Structures are given as C-alpha cells and as structure tokens.
Simulated scan of single mutants.
Amino acid sequence: MSFVELKYLTSYEAAVAARQKGAIGLIPVGALEQHGPHLPLVTDSAMVEVLAAAAAERFREPVIVTPTLMAGLSDHHVEFPGTVSLDRKTLKGEIGAYITSLNRMGLTRICLLSFHGGNFSFLGDCADDNLLALQGVQIEAYTDFRQFLNVMHTAGQKAGLQLASTDSHAGALETSLVLHVLGEERVREFETVQGYTRNEHGWMETMQAKGVKAVSATGVFGTPCGASASAGKMILDALVDEVALWLGETFLLEEIR
C-alpha cells in the first residue's frame, strides 16, 4: 500500500488506511485559471494530481491523497475568461476542513502540495496556522517555488527545449507537461503563440500589481514553441524526484527500491 486515493474508499476503508503504520495525508491544491490560448484551464490542477499520485507511489507507507482542490489564488489571471480565484479566507477554510477531516480519520501527519506558483507561500501559512490549532499533528507544505521552477527548467533544458528565462506559465515547460499527461487532444495549436520573454527589470512587480495582462497579452510567460510530450515526461519525472525527496525527508518515509 502506497498511493491511496481517498475519494474511492469507503468510510470504513478510510479509517483502516489511516491506522496503517507511517500513514500520511496529502492534500493537492490546484488552480482553475487561464493558460494562454492553447492550454486548458485545469492545467495546474491536473498536474498536481498526477504529481501527487506519482510521488506517493514511491513509498512503502500509505500516502492517502485527497481529491484535488480545483481552485486557488489566481487574482492576477482574472481578466482572462474562465479563471476562478478564491479569496484567501475561503481557500484557507477549505484546506482547514480537509486537514480536520484527515485528522479525524486518525492521521497525525499531513502535507500540502501545489503546482500553481501563486499558492506556494500561502500553503506554508496554512500549514503553520493549522499546526497551531491542532495539537500533536505534523502539518507541512512544499513552499519552495524557486526550487520547483528550477527543477523544471533544468529538466526542460536537458530535454532539448529552448527556454526563455521567463518561462513559468503556459510556456514550453507546461505545454510539454500537458502534452505528456493529458495528450495532444487537450492542447490547441501552440507553435505560433507568443508569450512574454524580454525579462525586463520589474516585470514581476508589474504583474503582481496590475495583473498578468499588463505584462503578457496572451497570458503566457515564455513561449510554447518546441514543446513536446517527450520533454514533458522528463520534466514530470524530475518533479516527482523532487517532491518524493522532500516527502521522504520531511516525514521519514521509506522509498520502495
């Protein structure tokens, strides 16, 4: 038993799984937001779901994964149709309800994981707040978005992608991942899509203050040109290695050899 998908368990089975030695709970937090004219709104949620499952499979101990929270903090993207953004209080309450439910099942070790950059630091705050509210429970969040993005860039370059330094949203990295995970039928024509690549001083501050559209009319950072499913596999494998390493060290889990 390693990857345990909570939504398919009965209530009785959930209680049994939580009692297994070393069991931890994992809450994937996604986003429902624009990803340029070529990728689906569900991109971040789909990626964190696959990432959580693949990382969970690495361990002997049960990793009980909840259903993915489909919307996150996406205020910078709301000018683009289809984007859903939760306020911080609502998202914190939703995450807190999942943590409480897992704890009631009997789990005392719980982690939060995202793929959407806008969620990372917030998840750390949620973990800290819930840690104060629940005695004897270890709650951790993967918060190092810089490292996460660096892992993607390194793997993408090894896969032969020509990456702009700004590639962080719907560029060649994420387009490759979606091609690999969801298939070509979920990706619209992308070779001619133009994204923001100039890396001017202060561009991130402008985006944070005025929204994505103030920097990139297409909502893309980087350019998806040259993306491929084979590159996506290499990027996903590298991310699974990264998250599994973090999980193993944080919760002292035993990897399956």
Rank of each mutant, 00 (worst) to 15 (best):
G160T: 08
L177R: 09
H169A: 00
A231L: 09
A164R: 07
C225G: 05
S114G: 03
G136T: 10
F115T: 06
N150I: 06
T166N: 03
N119F: 02
N130Q: 14
V63R: 09
I95A: 05
A71K: 00
N119Y: 08
L173T: 12
A23C: 09
T66S: 11
A71Q: 08
G202T: 10
A155M: 00
L91S: 08
G72P: 03
A23T: 07
A209L: 09
I95C: 13
E174Q: 11
G226N: 13
L41W: 10
R146I: 13
T223H: 01
P81K: 04
E61V: 13
F145I: 15
E79H: 08
D237W: 04
V178L: 11
R58H: 03
L113V: 03
V193N: 06
P40S: 07
L102C: 09
S45T: 13
L86Y: 15
H153A: 08
E57A: 09
E200D: 15
E189K: 15
A53H: 07
F221N: 11
H77G: 01
T197V: 15
K158W: 04
G117Q: 02
R257L: 12
H38L: 08
F221G: 06
E79S: 15
T223E: 10
R109Y: 07
I64C: 07
F148M: 11
L73P: 06
V137C: 14
L123W: 10
R186S: 14
G226A: 02
R60N: 11
V243E: 02
H35R: 14
W246G: 13
A23N: 12
E33M: 09
A54Y: 04
M1D: 12
L247R: 04
P37W: 02
V84P: 04
E242Q: 15
L239H: 04
L179Y: 03
G219M: 10
M234I: 01
K92Y: 08
L41M: 14
A55Y: 02
L41E: 05
R19C: 08
I27Y: 01
G25V: 00
T192F: 06
S228R: 01
V187I: 11
L113A: 07
A31E: 04
V212K: 05
F122L: 07
T154G: 02
Q135F: 07
R186N: 15
A227F: 02
G183N: 08
V78S: 05
V65H: 05
E242D: 15
M105S: 09
L245W: 08
A155G: 01
A231N: 04
L6C: 02
G136L: 11
A71I: 00
T166F: 01
L177E: 01
Q34P: 05
T175D: 02
D87T: 10
L51M: 12
C111R: 02
L163N: 08
L182I: 05
L173W: 12
G171L: 12
P81D: 05
A229K: 06
G93P: 12
Q147C: 04
D44A: 05
R146K: 13
G22R: 10
